[in-house]
Design a binder for these strands. Structure first.
Lengths: 220, 220
DNA sequence: TAGATTGTTAATCGATTAACAATC
DNA sequence: TAGATTGTTAATCGATTAACAATC
């Protein structure tokens, strides 16, 4: 893995996706600890809380730098802030939702997103009944105006929550708008250029993982 | 891999969760291929479609048994049926949703669940405005009646989509009802006994994984 | 200082990939 | 039969765990 010379320390690509996916969970636990006025925690204590090994926690955190103190542990507030920065949450992300159905509306209501600097500034739909109305404080706009809106506002995240049949087509539109990050809730693998990042959330697939384990084991 | 002698072939625990989580994706691709009237496919072709290696596909499928034919490949319909069985979808799963907000309502509308024998037979909420009404064809009931209903109907899956503050408390209720499978959409790690299986879907955490990659790489 | 706990290297474990004999 | 592709073993790679010196 090459470090590209001059300017960077820990390129995103240096840290495995496995570790990155654990970061939001660390962040959540640290926020909860802070709420409970805990101001220091050891990797051992955190490991018991989270069901990981202390060793893994130290390895994970150390892939971004040394945030602890030997003989003491980690300062909850400091570590929380550090992870917040690592997750890129010190800047703001203008975001839009494509598809103003129940799922899209549910996400527009997640107050936590606002707390983390992820601002849902519009929803898009092609149903004339919905266009022009508001969901919470979020205006529902015409999908036809999507690209212009994104370019004017500098949107960086699109949440895709539309029917499967039109998923790829709207992903193409998102890509054309210049957005580089898609949260995909459509049960479909989107084809996008390499520089566009897609995070998939597949609720149906998760239920099927559940049925696998619920079904009785028997002679096959 | 030991085959445990007498009664069972591949205990659930023999196959890693990593492989199991890929099964629904194989299943989806095979269904799509069937729709397109493709009746045979090689691990090579499937690997190109899915972005995996052919080797991994053969390893994955072989952890459940030999479903292919040397020199020929896999029969799409047969393999699809096999995976359907492995996922436990040959039986029916009565399911309920706890929390009749947007997220719960969105899931009650997933038609695909019905196609896969996962029947949403009721939603539960404690809002008197919602209780007694229907969402789609699904009745919204009082959370107070949850345990009785589950026991009477033999419900096997609970989808939890309630505010974080009451997540654990309702998980306790689900456990008390005897349900062994929970799809958890609450951004919270539920504490449940070992024999209860929880699948977590954490939309907010997925967005934070996205912001990690969207944020500019710079000197740390 | 002595005790605790990190940061980090080394060992282990598990998952992925490669290779090829078996066989359709 | 010859060609293709699986099933499966062996090799590699990556992730987790263990161990311990560094140090607060």
């Amino acid at each position: 893995m090459d470090h590209g010379g001059v300017s960077m320390n820990n390129a995103k690509s240096d840290v495995s996706i496995t570790v990155v996916r654990r970061l939001p969970r660390y962040y959540q636990y640290l926020k909860d600890l802070e709420t409970k006025d805990v101001d220091r925690i050891s990797s051992k204590q955190l490991s018991e809380l989270m069901g990981l090994t202390a060793s893994q926690i130290r390895q994970d955190l150390n892939s971004f730098g040394a945030y602890g103190q030997q003989g003491y542990g980690y300062r909850v507030t400091d570590l929380k802030k550090a992870i917040r920065n690592i997750l890129g949450l010190s800047r703001t992300y203008k975001s839009v939702i494509i598809g103003a159905g129940n799922l899209g509306r549910a996400i527009s209501n997640f107050e936590r997103l606002g707390h983390e600097n992820i601002e849902i500034i519009a929803m898009f739909d092609n149903d004339p009944e919905k266009i022009g109305k508001e969901v919470g404080n979020v205006p529902v706009k015409d999908t036809a105006d999507f690209i212009d809106f994104v370019k004017k506002e500098g949107v960086s995240i699109a949440v895709l929550s539309v029917p499967r049949e039109v998923g790829q087509q709207l992903a193409d539109m998102i890509v054309a708008s210049g957005i580089k990050g898609i949260l995909n809730l459509v049960p479909l693998d989107l084809k996008v250029p390499q520089d566009v990042r897609v995070e998939n959330v597949n609720i149906t697939d998760s239920i099927l993982t559940l049925t696998y384990y619920l079904d009785d084991v028997s002679v096959k």
